[in-house]
Design a protein around this nucleic acid. Structure first.
Lengths: 212, 212
DNA sequence: CTTCCTTGGAGAGTGTCACTATCCAATCAT
DNA sequence: ATGATTGGATAGTGACACTCTCCAAGGAAG
C-alpha cells in the first residue's frame, strides 16, 4: 500500500501522515526504491491509534510518541510494557508544590488509598502520573472551597474500582503481547470520553428523577 | 480589593486577569473612579472557577464564557440553569456523519440507552453534547476494530449511574440557586480528572492482583 | 503643588502546537 | 520520452491562551 492509499483508507490527509512519520509516531514504510515505500495493515492500524490518542485523548505528540514507543518495545515483558505504556499516558497540570491546598490534597489522597488498601497505586518510588492527577484535582477543589474529604471521594473510588475490573476483563480477551498492550492503551484512552459522556447522561437522568 | 490584590490572592497574573475581564469571563469590578475599580470575594471565587474550567477542564475560553453565562443567568429557574450550564460544558470532536462507523456507534448507543431506560439522555429534540460525546467515542473504537457492543458498555453505564448518584448527592448539599449551579459545574468538571486518575490507580491495583 | 507611582484599559505581540503548503529530485506509468 | 506521482525536507498557517507595551487618569509622598 502506498502513502496515497494509506491516506484514503485511514481518512488522514497525506501531509499529516508525512508529519507523523517525521515525528516518529508512525514507523517508516518498507522502502521499495529510492522514492517509494510500501505500507502494510500494521501501519494503517497504528495510524488510527495515533489519531485516537491525539484527537480523542488530546495527547501532545511527544506524549503519544512515548506511549507508542512503550507499546512497541519488544525488549520488555508484556505486563511491564503495559504498565509503561499506561504510565506515560496523560498528566494534565502538575500539582503546585508551593500551595498548601496541595498538601491537604495529598493527605486526603493518601488517606483514601490507605482506606482502600491500594498499595501499588502510588507507584514504585516516585509517584505515578495517575496519583499526581488525583492530587492535583483534589487540590483544585480545595482551593475553590469545596470540602472534598475521604468520605466524599469514597463512592468515586469504588466506582473506579468497578471500572477497572471491566477494563481488565476486556484486556484479558486479547493475547498477551503487543496486541494486548495496544488494546489496553486504546481502551484506557478511548473509554474516557465515553465514560464521561455516560456520566453526564446519567446525571441528566438522575437529576430528572429527583427534580423533574 | 484592587486588581493587584485579586491577582496575589488568586495566584493569577494581572495581565491574565485583564484578559479574562476583556473576554467577559469575569464581571467588571465596581468602578470607584475613572481609573480604579474594586473587586469583591465573588470576583475571587469566580476567577478561581474560571481557572479551573480552563486549566483543569481544558475548556476553550468561548465555552467557559457560555457555561458561566448560564451559571449567572438569574432569569432562569435554577434547575433549568443547571441543565443549561452542564449542557454547554465540553464536547470533543463531533462525530463524523459521513463515516459508517458513526452509524454503528449511534445504533449501539441507542440500544444501550434503551436497555437502561434512559429516556432523557438524548436531550430534547436535538442531541445533547454528552450523547454526541458517547457516539463519537464508540465510533472511534469501532474504527479501530474494537467490538464495543452493548454488553461491553453496560458495566461502564452502570458505574456511570452510580457516579451520577454520588454527584447529585453532593449537589443537593447546596442551597438551590447560583451557589448550587456553580457547585454542579465545578463538581462535574473537577471530578473528571480525579475520576480518571482513580480509574488508572484502580487499574494498576487490579492488574497487580491478576498478573502481579 | 508637584513629582512619581500605580491603576485599569486597549491593542498588538508571543509561544506553542498540530497541522499544511510548497518544492524538489527520483522514479513510475504510458 | 514525458508527464504524473512518490517520498522527503523546509517553511508557513491558524487557533488559542496568554503576555507585553503603552497610555491617560488618579492617588500618594514630600
Amino acid at each position: 500500500m502506498r502513502l496515497a492509499e494509506l491516506s484514503e483508507r485511514s481518512g488522514v490527509p497525506i501531509p499529516t501522515i508525512k508529519y507523523y512519520l517525521r515525528e516518529r509516531l508512525l514507523p517508516p514504510g518498507h522502502r521499495i526504491s529510492a522514492t517509494q515505500a510500501e505500507y502494510g495493515e500494521g501501519h494503517l492500524r497504528r495510524l488510527r491509534l495515533v489519531r485516537a490518542l491525539i484527537q480523542v485523548g488530546r495527547m501532545p505528540v511527544a506524549t503519544a510518541r512515548e506511549v507508542l514507543a512503550a507499546v512497541t518495545d519488544d525488549s520488555l515483558d508484556p505486563h511491564v510494557r503495559l504498565g509503561a505504556a499506561v504510565w506515560a499516558i496523560p498528566h494534565g497540570p502538575e500539582p503546585d508544590g508551593d500551595d498548601p491546598a496541595t498538601d491537604t490534597a495529598r493527605r486526603t489522597a493518601d488517606a483514601l488509598l490507605e482506606q482502600l488498601g491500594w498499595r501499588f497505586a502510588q507507584g514504585t518510588g516516585e509517584q505515578s502520573p495517575a496519583y499526581r492527577m488525583v492530587v492535583s484535582g483534589i487540590a483544585t477543589m480545595v482551593r475553590l472551597g469545596y470540602p472534598c474529604d475521604v468520605g466524599q471521594l469514597l463512592p468515586y473510588a469504588r466506582s473506579a474500582a468497578e471500572l477497572a475490573v471491566a477494563d481488565l476483563d476486556l484486556v484479558e480477551r486479547y493475547e498477551r503481547g503487543e496486541e494486548q498492550v495496544e488494546a489496553a492503551v486504546a481502551l484506557t484512552v478511548l473509554y474516557e470520553p465515553v465514560l464521561l459522556g455516560l456520566r453526564r447522561l446519567a446525571q441528566a437522568e438522575e437529576s430528572n428523577r429527583r427534580f423533574g
